[in-house]
């Protein structure tokens, strides 16, 4: 746990002496009890965290203070100085994704890039993307192999189906949440406020794509592998006991970059873009390819399509 970072990121509302005093208390208790869930932070931060409002009702200043607390917490828990931002959605943008399943060879480079990019717990083995291996001609998910490990892929006679959050336009998970801790942003991304979620996991029961994952314990991330470019609604280190999910790399895509899974794909199977831009590649695919969606009959309106050449 580092003391320096705290002075670096302080809010400036309280005078230095008082803050030092409070920090002293906090350090003492944290060292003695070592609470994993709260990450050994100061009393003042613990107090502010407890009474933190939900994201959509916080003022700009409150969000700023929350971001600073997140940074201090990460420093205390992982010893890494992260940059947590709150990049807002771009106007006139709704994101969509399409995957060319005839190109996907099952390399799982997307899976591994996602784990690193999004600071996913290494010990808990949470992965936002699952690549399913199926027999050629078979599309029954119950016959799929989730844990295929052959010497080389692709395996003759098999095809591959990557599945992740479909960012449904009528998301059943959002309806399920009893405290409105998950919602769809104006750019179509379904996000979770990790500081508001109570961990009831009803959204996990409601999701038809198994896209939601729970932090059964504090996610373990090696300090040297921490991605320090983070977002409040995205890849910041998560607390224990809350649900998380794919957020289309919100910290990248809102700045005009590609999601990490697309960047990592060596086969060019993945196409991501703005559904509202008629000149975008994703719109070209939707207009010119035979696209389909997974479990479309459930009426959740996924913004995630599959197609083949």
């Amino acid at each position: 746990m580092s003391n320096e970072s705290n002075s670096g990121n302080g809010g400036g509302k309280f005078d230095q002496a008082r803050r030092n005093f409070l920090r002293g208390i906090g350090l003492g208790t944290a060292a003695a009890v070592a609470q994993p869930a709260w990450g050994g932070q100061t009393f003042q931060d613990t107090f502010a965290d407890f009474f933190q409002k939900d994201y959509r009702r916080m003022s700009a200043e409150e969000i700023e203070a929350a971001l600073e607390r997140i940074e201090r917490k990460a420093e205390a828990r992982y010893g890494v100085e992260i940059d947590c931002q709150n990049t807002l959605p771009q106007p006139g943008v709704v994101y969509g994704y399409a995957i060319n399943i005839s190109r996907c060879k099952g390399y799982r480079d997307c899976v591994h890039a996602c784990v690193k990019e999004n600071n996913l717990g290494r010990d808990s083995q949470v992965q936002y993307i699952r690549v399913l291996q199926l027999d050629q001609g078979d599309f029954n998910l119950e016959h799929s192999d989730h844990y295929y490990e052959p010497e080389t892929v692709p395996v003759e006679g098999k095809h591959y189906l990557p599945v992740q959050c479909m960012q449904c336009d009528d998301p059943p998970c959002v309806k399920a949440c009893p405290v409105e801790a998950t919602w769809m942003e104006p750019d179509g991304i379904v996000v979770v406020d990790y500081d508001w979620c109570i961990g009831c996991r009803y959204c996990m029961a409601a999701c038809p794509y198994w896209a939601r994952h729970f932090n059964w314990t504090v996610p373990e991330i090696p300090a040297e592998e921490m991605n320090t470019n983070t977002h409040y609604l995205g890849n910041r280190p998560r607390p224990r006991g809350v649900v998380e999910k794919c957020h289309f790399c919100i910290h990248r895509t809102r700045k005009g970059q590609q999601p990490a899974c697309m960047e990592a794909c060596p086969t060019g199977s993945r196409i991501f873009g703005n559904l509202l831009d008629p000149d975008s590649e994703i719109r070209y695919v939707l207009a010119n390819k035979q696209v389909f969606r997974l479990k479309e009959d459930l009426g959740t309106e996924p913004k995630f399509w599959y197609f083949s050449d």
Binding site: D54, W196, C197, I198, G199, C200, R201, N215, V242, V243
Partner: peptide, 12 residues
């Protein structure tokens, strides 16, 4: 008992 964050029950 099933909640991941019983400390946040007041969010309801």
């Amino acid at each position: 008992a099933d909640l991941g964050r019983p400390d946040r029950l007041w969010h309801m």
